[in-house]
């Protein structure tokens, strides 16, 4: 008697037990460690930031009443607007420069390297074997007032005074970031070039295209998924980069992340910092969505 459960229950319980054995359930089980990790290390802190952004700083404690004041300040104070726009501009230039410089490298490895392609790819990642900080410092050595570049050019008699436009400004930040993120741009472009069926290129040639037309009518459109992936991979993190502008950017090269760090640190206004961080996040997300949306023409058609 006791083995017979209440009416309606066996169905639900049976279904749940059945679900536990399903492929879907085993998928969730496999996901759960990563999911838990992401929940604790990513979602929870992010939720904290969201909550804090609606509070007010009171010396070392918070006034926990809801306010939009921080957002108001973040979106109206000209200093934040200037820094945000500058961050976007620098990242935009870094992205375009990196992708344009990465493309020929990826193209060369994909189309002209016959043997040992993996080795070439490995060589491209070599700069990554050393710390990010070291690489940024190395650019200081190269670009500095008495740096390798300036002293070299003076020795050659090409310039008399050291060039000043290459250190402690936005240009320096662009050069440093473009170099640092190059492999991240090369790899997705390389992968999408590798995926191009070589007979498509022969077909284009057979149908009358010279090498240049063929590149713009077949190779580039088919490589667009890689180009877009590369753009996003470079653009999204560089907007929020804070080490490079801090080290080589001087005052005119400061970016939004520097001011956010300032709010959480010396300025001791975490709610404003949180509001700035979230605003930046929303803007970057919006731009990324826009890029993906405007390029869906290239990515969708290839879903074979």
């Amino acid at each position: 008697m006791s083995a017979v459960p209440a009416e309606g229950k066996p169905l639900l319980g049976g279904r749940f037990r059945f679900w536990l054995k399903s492929e879907e359930a085993s998928g969730f089980k496999l996901l759960s460690p990563a999911f838990l990790y992401a929940l604790v290390m990513l979602a929870a802190p992010l939720a904290m930031v969201v909550v804090i952004s609606f509070w007010t700083q009171e010396l070392i404690d918070f006034d926990r009443s809801f306010t939009l004041k921080n957002y108001e300040e973040a979106w109206t104070d000209p200093i934040y607007r200037v820094l945000m726009l500058r961050s976007l501009a620098i990242s935009g230039i870094v992205t375009v420069t990196t992708v344009i410089l990465a493309f020929p490298i990826a193209y060369f490895v994909s189309f002209h390297v016959k043997h040992h392609k993996p080795l070439w790819i490995l060589l491209i990642t070599i700069p990554f074997w050393t710390s990010y900080l070291l690489r940024v410092f190395l650019w200081k050595v190269i670009l500095g007032y008495n740096g390798v570049l300036n002293s070299g050019l003076i020795e050659l008699g090409l310039i008399e005074e050291p060039l000043t436009f290459i250190l402690y400004n936005a240009t320096t930040v662009v050069i440093t970031l473009a170099h640092a993120w190059a492999p991240f741009a090369i790899l997705p472009i390389f992968v999408s070039l590798e995926k191009i069926d070589r007979s498509l290129l022969e077909a284009a040639e057979d149908l009358g295209d010279g090498p240049i037309q063929r590149f713009f009518r077949v190779t580039l459109p088919l490589a667009m998924p890689g180009v877009i992936a590369a753009s996003l991979i470079v653009f999204i993190p560089t907007v929020g980069d804070y080490v490079t502008p801090r080290l080589v950017g001087g005052n005119s090269g400061l970016m939004i992340a520097n001011i956010i760090q300032l709010q959480f640190g010396q300025a001791s206004n975490a709610p404003l910092g949180a509001a700035l961080a979230l605003s930046a996040m929303v803007i970057v997300a919006a731009i990324s969505v826009l890029i993906v949306w405007s390029s869906r023409r290239f990515t969708k058609r290839q879903a074979r």
Partner: peptide
């Protein structure tokens, strides 16, 4: 003389249909 300057055209074994173009754009390619 490269392929694009020869009076020949080819049907490839894999057909080599351009995946990013529709039927009209493929046929009108040349």
């Amino acid at each position: 003389v490269p392929a694009n300057h020869r009076p020949t055209n080819m049907v490839f074994q894999s057909y080599a249909i351009f995946p990013h173009l529709n039927v009209f754009e493929n046929v009108s390619y040349g």
